[in-house]
């Protein structure tokens, strides 16, 4: 799948990876792109992590971020101290929003087993896209970011700034510089997940 992945995680592969769950395409924006941009600005140290996560599809990335295995590994350093990371907060909040809007907020067994089958078959999941949101929906995204931030131990100022930045990115178009760069691709801005 390396051929699918372009620089900057933006691709238009032949995968039909368009709509995602949220039924984008009407000016929606992929979750992963928002995450990359916001994290790049708010917590540049975490860019390395986002890069790593961009290599896998949305479903797996979310599953990884959600399931924080705290197993004590032999030969680990043994620190259980958790770093308050921005990436999971943003990604999980946006993922929830995208699914809520698409009416698929509740994960049922059928969906999970399908996801598992797809993983076994090494087929990538569709890219999750956040559609244009109403004011209330944006507010709920903001609230969710604050909640998750508090849960993961982010300072309240950081969490607030993060929430503002996420909402701003969802409302505003991407910065000009990137737009100019993207012009050449002419793509929809969807990253190609890696299989």
């Amino acid at each position: 799948m390396d051929s699918v992945r372009g620089t900057d995680g933006r691709t238009a592969g032949g995968q039909g990876v368009v709509a995602g769950v949220g039924g984008g395409g009407r000016g929606g924006v992929p979750v992963r792109e928002v995450v990359r941009e916001v994290v790049g600005e708010v917590a540049p140290d975490e860019s390395v992590l986002v890069d790593g996560l961009l290599r896998i599809d949305d479903e797996r990335a979310v599953a990884r971020l959600r399931g924080r295995g705290r197993a004590r590994e032999p030969l680990g350093f043994g620190v259980q101290e958790v770093t308050a990371l921005v990436t999971p907060v943003v990604w999980l909040a946006l993922d929830e929003a995208a699914r809520k809007v698409a009416g698929a907020a509740v994960e049922n067994v059928g969906r999970r087993s399908k996801a598992w089958l797809r993983r076994v078959a090494r087929r990538p999941a569709a890219v999750r896209v956040v559609p244009p949101l109403t004011a209330e929906q944006l507010e709920s995204v903001r609230q969710r970011v604050l909640e998750l931030g508090a849960e993961s131990g982010l300072a309240s100022e950081t969490a607030t700034a993060l929430a503002e930045r996420v909402v701003a990115r969802l409302v505003l178009p991407p910065p000009r510089r990137e737009l100019a760069q993207e012009g050449g691709d002419g793509g929809s801005g969807e990253p190609g997940p890696e299989a």
Partner: peptide, 27 residues
């Protein structure tokens, strides 16, 4: 990348080892 602890772990077999840095540590 998804491990939020500021830790690392080593694994591997017979002279082929890998150090896995947790996301929290890298960040």
């Amino acid at each position: 990348p998804a491990e939020v602890t500021a830790s690392a772990v080593v694994f591997g077999r017979l002279r082929r080892y890998a150090v896995c840095l947790h996301g929290g540590l890298v960040a």
